[in-house]
Design a protein around this nucleic acid. Structure first.
Lengths: 347, 347
DNA sequence: GTATTTCATGAAAACATTTGCAAAACTATT
DNA sequence: AATAGTTTTGCAAATGTTTTCATGAAATAC
């Protein structure tokens, strides 16, 4: 029962009176070793408190069993959810995730990717489609499996698995239009380093524009991802002389804050104003009034990304992995309705 | 510019016309190598696309630069927030985190810890105080730095950094009592494998009991961590013939759902019923009405845990790290008030 | 009872790096 | 110009594992 220095494979071998090779085999090809010796080895392992050293395995070209996951931040519930689903799915195959966040800084993203590669991750997950060229070059040169998670776009050089954000934006804009709204405000997060938000905003404005609905600057908010800020901006919007009949928010967090802002101003949703979001986050279905939104299936995206990446890792020669569209879905709840005649004003 | 096979240190050495040792030194002890050769090596590194192999370093006893972080789940915003803060703080010191979740299954926790150790993490973070004995034994035998994050308790064998949950529970119960409530309902999450929730519930009931307030079984809900479920349970509570004047929820998610349930039933908060939570999650300050709660400082806990663990790793001989209490704080907002005379009934 | 096949095991090389030691190459001093 | 001192570099051993190949033992076939 000596554990003076940490036990290595030869310590185990000595304790079991076999060679190191046999111990190694007992782990990696148990069927190549006699049940009797296997038992002796098992006992020795327990006795010495031996724990295999993956670092030593990895330098033989054996997989490290780690996958690098790079997200902008975990503070947004939706990414936490994706990561959770992903992590659950890959851990079933024995992989552990190396997680890091870059805070929407594409330079940091590159640095983190390098660190991942130093750790010899078996695969990489990036969030979104937009990344520094250097990132893609690095990925190419290392020939490492990679999936772009969260967004879908079939023109990317690496498989992308996620929802089509343009579609999501169009869906929610069309919903608002179909209810008859012509006076529409928008609240979107800052778009620097965030292709998702950018795509959504563009398509929403375009869809509205195509229908002849222009969003005046005073009704166009750029609001950081935070309930407090969106509540504040909503209250500012509602205190304007002219009010829109509908507000389209870039995500459900902003929409939630807007709902609170409406309550705080004594404005009723949806009878006085329609509020919609994008995302269908946890809680969006239960907030009062329940939020009309477009569901981006986070758990499904995480799980599908896991499935795809794992198969790229363990069967690299099989059919090359392709992108997968996890379709967004309009979820119509009680926060949206037709505009009331009385609330129609000219801006 | 050959990259037929991935470049290793000797490929770089060859390209720079030096020995492998010199390349190694250029990385690890740059001052021991002439600026001129350093420059040649730099160029060779770039030319070959070399990326250092941490696995090979690690088997020399050099730190792996990874920290294992084990949480119950990332689906609860509060844990995501703690992990985010932790990850930011340790990455400044060059560490990357290995993240895994056990879903409140203490057996899985042990298995994951083993896997972390196979990867030769430099330190480990566990969530909460309660863990399988085997976990602590393993930690002991491997003599690996470890911090128990999230809860505080000065009697634990490893440093714990977090909030005192008993205190938080007592604070919120005392607040409700101090407002004059005598008819109190409770809604807590299931406590299996979750010492936080258990401690909170116990202390809340005890504090109420000491003040002569008993919670009847019909007002005692065990509700899974979900807005929908708590909304449902709240609506069930409010449809009972006898209604409490206050509801204490085990966390802010449950409290949020309860608030929505109240709105859905047309019951006003706080005039008809007081609702309070524990946690002060994102959004709790902006929900309508803003939620009275006890703040558990997640970001601070994450950052302090990082600080402590990093110092245990890079300076193991300095003063042994001790626990740190990140004190909870009563945040009084508008969801709590004195009971109205008219709403006082005998249960 | 011998020859052949199968099977379990061990020895040694390989993996990518670091490091102690010694040799070589410079500087400075006389 | 020779010596001593210092700095820079390379060689070789070491790290913990896997794997190829070889060896010897047991099992099967004749």
């Amino acid at each position: 029962m000596k554990k003076s220095k940490k036990a290595d494979i030869v310590a185990v071998a000595k304790a079991a009176k076999v060679s190191a090779s046999t111990v190694s085999r007992a782990f990696n090809h148990p069927n190549l070793v006699t049940p009797a010796t296997r038992k002796r080895i098992d006992a020795a392992v327990r006795r010495t408190g031996y724990i295999r050293n993956r670092a030593a395995q990895t330098i033989h070209g054996i997989r490290s069993g780690t996958i690098g996951v790079l997200v902008p931040t975990l503070d947004h519930t939706i990414f936490a959810e994706v990561v959770q689903a992903f992590s659950e799915a890959v851990s079933e195959h024995g992989f552990t995730i190396l997680l890091a966040s870059h805070g929407y800084d594409l330079q940091r993203e590159y640095a983190i990717l390098r660190k991942f590669l130093e750790h010899r991750v078996d695969g990489v997950v990036l969030t979104g489609l937009e990344h520094d060229d250097a990132v893609f070059q690095l990925l190419d040169s290392q020939e490492i499996p990679c999936v772009l998670m969260w967004n879908y776009d079939d023109t990317t050089c690496y498989p992308s698995i996620g929802a089509d954000n343009e579609l999501a934006g169009r869906m929610i804009a069309e919903h608002v239009l179909s209810l008859g709204h012509r006076h529409v405000a928008c609240m979107f997060p800052p778009t620097a380093g965030n292709d998702r938000a950018f795509a959504r905003r563009e398509i929403v404005l375009r869809t509205l524009g195509n229908a002849g609905v222009a969003v005046p600057p005073a009704w166009m908010f750029t609001t950081v991802y935070s309930i407090s800020d969106s509540k504040r901006d909503m209250m500012a919007l509602l205190s304007q002389r002219d009010r829109p009949t509908a507000l389209i928010c870039g995500n459900d967090i902003l929409a939630s804050g807007a709902l609170y802002g409406a309550v705080a101003c004594g404005i009723r949703v949806p009878s006085d104003i329609t509020v919609v979001g994008i995302g269908d986050f946890k809680g969006s279905s239960d907030i009062e009034p329940p939020l009309t939104t477009v569901r981006l299936p986070a758990r499904r995206i995480g799980a599908e990304t896991a499935r795809a990446l794992v198969s790229m890792i363990i069967a690299p020669d099989s059919a090359p992995q392709t992108s997968l569209h996890c379709a967004p879905e309009l979820i119509q709840r009680q926060s949206s309705d037709r505009p009331r005649a009385s609330s129609m004003r000219t801006p």
